[in-house]
């Protein structure tokens, strides 16, 4: 009988709470977001296309999406490793490490930005060792990737971690009993179970990196055509009172976020395909 959701529930307050939820959601989120779409609709198609495909804008997409892709990939690899180590192994400081993983969520992006810029500047804590090797991080696309890796770090770890926790010992034991080696077990039993969560974490980290602003601008150098990210370009246009341009580019970004949201939702659906 639990299969059938009851519509006529005796708990009170459904009407007012749902009503307020929709009202507040519309007021704060939906109406303002629709302003963006309506504003863009004021442009002709030709104007819109030429705005969002101008060379400087195209270069910014390349930098933003390229760096985000690299950062999300780094996070996918190290995130899985960190999640695995945090769940499976005991070592001193494990609990602190576990709690610190969320630091990029909690640390204001501006603070992260100036700190990373300082550490990786040519005379910073890390930068001074990279400088002699000819590796420049601050004020290059590499710096953008670095900042994006920082802010995306918790996503893969936090989506993969619970899945690792839930892998039943019996599964691994069963594989062992059936004669699989440890490596085969990881490859053929554990990895396929983790894959959906890894991809979801990757997509979340990517989506976050694409929209990120605060932690990047300090380390990016912000050179047009080279290290200028799209969110910064929107602000630049806005400061030049080019509202149409800012809106058009923002609309492209919004579309990209919606696509990512869709992908993430599909990934999550896919990850539940074996659930009852």
């Amino acid at each position: 009988m639990k299969l059938f959701k009851r519509q006529n529930n005796v708990l009170p307050g459904f009407g007012p709470t749902l009503g307020f939820t929709i009202f507040y959601l519309s007021l704060i989120v939906l109406i303002p977001l629709s302003a963006l779409v309506f504003r863009t609709a004021g442009l002709t198609w030709g104007e819109f296309v030429s705005t969002v495909t101008a060379p400087r804008v195209m270069a910014s997409y390349k930098v933003t999406f390229g760096a985000a892709l690299v950062a999300a990939s780094i996070n996918a690899v190290f995130g899985v490793l960190v999640a695995w180590v945090l769940v499976r192994y005991k070592f001193p400081g494990r609990k602190i490490a576990d709690a610190l993983v969320d630091l990029p969520f909690a640390l204001p992006t501006a603070v992260a930005g100036i700190t990373l810029a300082t550490i990786y500047s040519p005379n910073g804590w890390v930068g001074r060792f990279l400088e002699p090797l000819g590796i420049k991080v601050a004020f290059t696309p590499l710096g953008i990737t670095l900042a994006m890796t920082f802010i995306g770090l918790p996503f893969v770890v936090r989506t993969v971690q619970p899945v690792v926790e839930e892998i039943e010992v019996e599964l691994e034991e069963a594989a062992l009993c059936l004669g699989a080696s440890r490596w085969q077990t990881i490859q053929r039993v554990i990895f396929p179970m983790l894959l959906p969560s890894i991809l979801t974490g990757f997509a979340l980290a990517f989506a976050r990196a694409v929209g990120e602003y605060g932690s990047i601008i300090f380390i990016a150098g912000n050179m047009p055509m080279v290290s200028e990210i799209t969110p910064l370009l929107i602000i630049t246009k806005l400061e030049q009172f080019d509202y149409q341009g800012a809106t058009a580019i923002a609309c492209v970004m919004l579309l990209a976020s919606f696509l990512m949201l869709l992908v993430i939702n599909l990934l999550q659906k896919w990850s539940r395909r074996y659930a009852e």
Binding site: T21, L25, V29, L30, I31, P32, L33, A35, L36, R39, T109, A207, V210, G211, E212, Y213, G214, P231, L232, I234, I235, L238, Y243, A246, T247, A250, M253, L254, S257, F258, M260, L261, N265
Partner: peptide, 21 residues
């Protein structure tokens, strides 16, 4: 999904929409 929307929007856009209004 709609409630989660602000998380997937770039902070810059979050500011921009209010400027537009």
């Amino acid at each position: 999904t709609l409630i989660d929307l602000p998380f997937s929007v770039s902070p810059v856009i979050s500011g921009l929409i209010y400027v537009l209004i």
